[in-house]
């Protein structure tokens, strides 16, 4: 347990992912739901970096050691765009219906 192993890194990342899933399922505040999406994106980043580190540790001349980190940089750019557009939608919704509660937005209810 006191050595850093790949399965522990992956378990920590999946724990954060599942906390994000719980938040999205149980919360109604749209701001908190967007934060939970950020949590899940971050856990995916940790999985990528952990696997990249394992690839580096397994051979003295890894094929493309920086590939996972470039993936994470791309995810970061997409996450920034997602946060910007998501919060803009939140502001537009709040102006129209004066609420940030996802339970009160029932236009698509059957």
């Amino acid at each position: 347990m006191t050595e850093l192993t790949l399965d522990n890194v992956l378990l920590i990342a999946s724990a954060i992912f599942c906390v994000g899933v719980y938040g999205i399922l149980s919360r109604q505040n749209i701001i908190v739901i967007l934060m939970c999406v950020e949590l899940m994106l971050n856990s995916a980043n940790m999985v990528l970096v952990g696997f990249g580190r394992a690839a580096i540790a397994s051979s003295p001349t890894p094929a493309s050691p920086n590939m996972p980190q470039i993936f994470v940089i791309m995810i970061l750019a997409v996450a920034a765009a997602e946060a910007g557009v998501g919060l803009a939608i939140l502001l537009a919704v709040f102006r129209k219906w004066r609420t940030t509660n996802a339970g009160e937005l029932h236009l698509l209810n059957g």
Partner: peptide, 16 residues
């Protein structure tokens, strides 16, 4: 089967 990731276990080559 993945190796231990701690710093002291990493190979000491320039690529790494």
């Amino acid at each position: 089967d993945a190796p231990i990731l701690s710093n002291s276990f990493l190979p000491d080559t320039p690529a790494v």
